[in-house]
Design a binder for these strands. Sequence first.
DNA 1: CTGTCTATCTATAATAG
DNA 2: TCTATTATAGATAGACA
Lengths: 160, 160
Amino acid sequence: MVRRRVEIKKIEEKSKMYTTFTKRRQGLFKKTKVLCTMCDAEAAVLTFSKAGNAFFFGHPSVESVVNRYFARPSPTSTNSEIEGNEHEVVAPPISEAEKKIAELMGKGRAAWDVAVRNLGLFELDELEAAIQKIKSKVVAQAEESISNGEDQEAEFCGTD
Amino acid sequence: MVRRRVEIKKIEEKSKMYTTFTKRRQGLFKKTKVLCTMCDAEAAVLTFSKAGNAFFFGHPSVESVVNRYFARPSPTSTNSEIEGNEHEVVAPPISEAEKKIAELMGKGRAAWDVAVRNLGLFELDELEAAIQKIKSKVVAQAEESISNGEDQEAEFCGTD
DNA sequence: CTGTCTATCTATAATAG
DNA sequence: TCTATTATAGATAGACA
């Protein structure tokens, strides 16, 4: 018990492996969050368990980070660190998701129930990012009392 | 000195922030490697420092993982071609979390706009969590359809 | 930006519910 | 499944190179 030395090798027992995967994945996401928070960085973690389940984390959103990855000059290497030089402004509009959501909201709960299942992951990602953005704005206001004139319609503005 | 409690908030001193970014990013990559090794999983980590530098890690490669992310069938257009299984939209309730959103959205777009702007951090957190849960369900459904075997649970995590 | 050192903090393996 | 507990293996802040 009490956590003996952990061998860094494949765990053969499935149930044990799944447990470990879950715990470590959660830890990984948490670490990523902290990194983004403390260092004002952008990061995304994409994981696929052996069982075939997918788990993603991204700040400000998975998609924006992945897009930024593709916007890089030459990200051809694998399994290693790559250096970039410039800042690519990716400003992805959330219009697509926004329209969808607005449309859904107009039709009420019933429509939402059905339609939400037809939303793509990306759109949900965008919606999430929008909320995160709003959240950070609230945080900023609380911490510094910043009243920026750029207060948009609290809606889905993904541009950062 | 000797490492007192680390506040999880943005580090203002740039040099300090960069150092922390480097260290934590390395730790993150290491953790990811271990996760992949022990749980026979696939994962990718994409990071962008505030200074604009990019660092990636991926197993088996960044590209393969990112591709897998994009290859993820979006229920919007792909759900009917999966293994010839019938894919009914009329599924059981997604989750309790969705009620939160439905509640907010059920009143229409205008109400949503106002409501979101007046939400506190706690509520935004809840809302975000709700969206993440819905996203996870979408992922789960997609995965379920593919592997058509064991069903675990998919889940998304968001920035806290 | 990265490596090294060390004292300390955090994540987590094993277990119980 | 998920959560809580606990003791320890592992990560890391700060200082320096």
